[in-house]
Nucleic acid binder design. Structure first.
Length: 252
DNA sequence: TCATTAATCGCAC
DNA sequence: GTGCGATTAATGA
């Protein structure tokens, strides 16, 4: 597709790649580490990390596995989910370049309560808890940014609870579409991420059938258009209008 | 192309 | 609004 994708494919060398991207020259401006380039300690990040290449569909965090570090996404898209009692998946959030995965259990001796899977070929930067703790203790600016990130995540997670418990299925699906749109943007008129109907359902807290039904009525109302798995939003303003009546400001 | 997987729809509850 | 099963469309080897 584009030059960047090709670059990622070259990095597809399996677990524990030795060719680490240097944090100083890294072009991922969405990354917390990158935003702290001012610090001289930035060089340490490059030395302490392990780069991991994940193929599409590969799960790199298993629910119940012991927590021992933190993942940063260098390039790619990931879904973070939790499995319910009857095997139902609840997608907790999506993540893209620069986002952090596995932070909930960081700094504890606990086990992951979530799973994470690559939605496309993804390159991760992995820091073991011990190494990262050393960096955090010596870099106040980075620690502060990480704290802001945690606060923001908590806020979003609280908004999500409200969304699932108080909105109708249609509203939750529209809300999810808007979230995907703000997070991943569009490409050629379609949302720049490919999700199955089931994944939309798992994120909106409903079933695959409901998603299909809502999508087809939204299509009839000319609010969205689809081509295979790809979804395009025709008028973001109109969609926002539908949920703004409830004064829910989600996914900020 | 053919086999596999996903999307869709109808229908019962 | 949910869940099952049959049909149809899309994907990818």
């Amino acid at each position: 597709m584009n030059r960047i994708t090709t670059h990622t494919d070259k990095l597809k060398v399996g677990i524990n790649s030795s060719s680490n991207t240097n944090c100083i020259t890294c072009s991922n401006t969405n990354c917390l580490i990158n935003r702290n380039t001012a610090s001289k300690q930035i060089a340490i990040f490059s030395e302490e990390k392990t780069q991991i290449a994940c193929k599409k569909g590969q799960q790199f965090i298993i629910e119940g596995a012991p927590v021992n570090g933190l993942f940063f996404i260098l390039k790619g898209k990931v879904k973070v989910f939790r499995t319910g009692i009857n095997g139902k998946e609840q997608i907790v959030r999506f993540a893209k370049d620069g986002d952090i995965i596995g932070h909930r259990g960081f700094g504890t001796d606990e086990y992951y309560s979530i799973g994470a899977m690559a939605l496309e070929n993804t390159v991760l930067c992995y820091f073991s808890g011990k190494k990262l703790q050393n960096i955090l203790k010596n870099n106040a600016s980075f620690a502060y940014d990480l704290m802001l990130f945690y606060a923001n995540e908590l806020n979003k997670s609280e908004a999500k609870v409200k969304s699932i418990s108080q909105m109708t299925v249609r509203e939750r699906i529209i809300d999810s579409l808007l979230y995907i749109h703000t997070k991943f943007n569009t490409l050629n008129g379609f949302l720049h991420i490919v999700l199955t109907r089931k994944e939309y359902a798992d994120f909106a807290g409903t079933t695959e059938e409901q998603v299909i039904r809502i999508f087809s009525s939204l299509k009839k109302e000319k609010l969205i258009h689809t081509k295979g798995k790809k979804i395009g939003i025709n008028d973001i303003g109109l969609l926002k209008k539908e949920i703004s009546a409830h004064n829910f400001y989600l996914h900020l």
